[in-house]
Design a protein around this nucleic acid. Structure first.
Length: 379
DNA sequence: GTTGAGCGTT
């Protein structure tokens, strides 16, 4: 005897909203409630259908659809998730159960950390009753994270205060450190940030190997020219610079050579850092820009450069707090520009002086301060 | 060919 199509409300306690409410993503911005309704109608009785919109009324490209039963919602997922790509959408339709309240709370905290570096839930959340709840949630999350790491890693052990500062974790002014530290640690783990975002110290392996740009011959299996060959065609334009600058540049490119030799394409691990176990590979893209005057825009990067090669190239000028090469999403190819952020403006200026106009192959790097996003703000 | 995207949780 198999299952029969019993009506859920006969046996289950009143069906909770969350197990029959769906989040729908990857709609296009033109699709209305009615369009979404028609899409989901075949799979059950729809009690609610809402397209999420911004303040200006424009669709955010996603929606909520609430069915009358869990089974209907599940069947819609099975039938529709990934089934099609809406015109103008960047990937196929997403249909999944909507976040629970807990997940929503955590998501909000993550957003606030990403935007403001706020790690104190009493500040991050608008109401104190929520902050108590959030704190409990974070402890729960921290326990899970700790368990998955073998339980030995605490944030306070993993990060010196200076490094936390670089990461933007201690950015609340006017709060005594001892009021923040315990909370920030738990929060840090709750957000899955238990490994540093980048190797901030200069890798020791760069230092001893300074032999010029012809480098160590090695071949890459993918048929791309090895990165170091790009620097072997003549000494670039920095020859008028001081010997100190030249040394620094040699270190930079030797770093790239060493890096690519050890970690061929695609790995995310900076040199000098042990390869993480898969369970430790956690999203670490929260941090973005550094302070004003610390963020560089770099254009004409070699096609082969990824985030880590970019970082290696700029590490000799200071503490790189982030590096990002823009990729074409469709082709997964570099767009040959990117960003590097330092923790202080002097490093950024030193990097500009040394690297702007640097010739690589047929191109010269453009290295300049990133344009501020509010560049032409009126008043 | 040019500035931190994208995927969005009421």
């Amino acid at each position: 005897m198999g299952q029969t199509n019993t009506l859920p409300h006969l046996h289950l306690p009143l069906s909770t909203v969350k197990d029959r409410k769906l989040f729908v993503g990857m709609l296009n911005k033109q699709q209305t409630e009615e369009d979404v309704y028609r899409l989901f109608e075949p799979y059950g009785v729809i009690e609610e259908c809402t397209v999420l919109r911004g303040p200006d009324g424009n669709s955010k490209g996603c929606a909520f659809v609430k069915f009358s039963t869990h089974a209907e919602a599940q069947s819609a997922i099975s039938a529709l998730h990934g089934s099609q790509t809406m015109p103008g959408a960047s990937s196929s339709l997403v249909v999944k159960f909507a976040d629970t309240d807990k997940e929503r709370t955590i998501r909000r905290m993550q957003q606030m950390v990403g935007q403001f570096g706020i790690f104190n839930p009493a500040i991050a959340l608008p109401f104190s009753t929520y902050s108590t709840y959030a704190h409990a949630l974070m402890q729960q999350q921290a326990a899970i994270m700790a368990a998955s790491h073998g339980g030995y890693l605490t944030p306070s052990m993993a990060f010196p205060a200076t490094q936390l500062h670089q990461m933007g974790a201690l950015s609340i002014n006017g709060l005594p450190p001892n009021s923040m530290t315990p909370v920030s640690g738990e929060f840090h783990q709750a957000l899955g940030l238990s490994s540093p975002p980048a190797n901030i110290t200069t890798p020791s392996i760069v230092t001893p190997i300074v032999n010029g740009f012809t480098g160590i011959p090695h071949h890459q299996p993918n048929g791309h020219p090895a990165v170091e060959t790009m620097y072997s065609n003549g000494l670039p334009s920095y020859s008028t610079q001081s010997p100190t600058a030249a040394d620094t540049l040699q270190q930079a490119f030797t770093g790239v050579q060493q890096y690519t030799a050890i970690y061929p394409a695609g790995t995310l691990t900076p040199i000098g850092q042990t390869l993480p176990q898969p369970s430790q590979v956690i999203q670490q893209q929260q941090q973005r820009e550094g302070p004003e005057g610390c963020n560089l825009f770099i254009y004409h990067l070699p096609q082969e450069f990824g985030d880590n090669e970019l970082m290696q190239m700029f590490l000799p000028f200071g503490s790189v707090i982030s590096s990002k090469v823009f990729m074409d999403r469709a082709t997964n190819q570099s767009k040959c520009f990117g960003f590097v952020s330092f923790d202080n403006p002097a490093s950024a200026q030193a990097a500009i002086q040394a690297m702007n106009g640097f010739q690589i192959g047929m191109k010269r790097l453009k290295v300049q301060l990133k344009r501020p996003k509010d560049a032409s703000r009126p008043y």
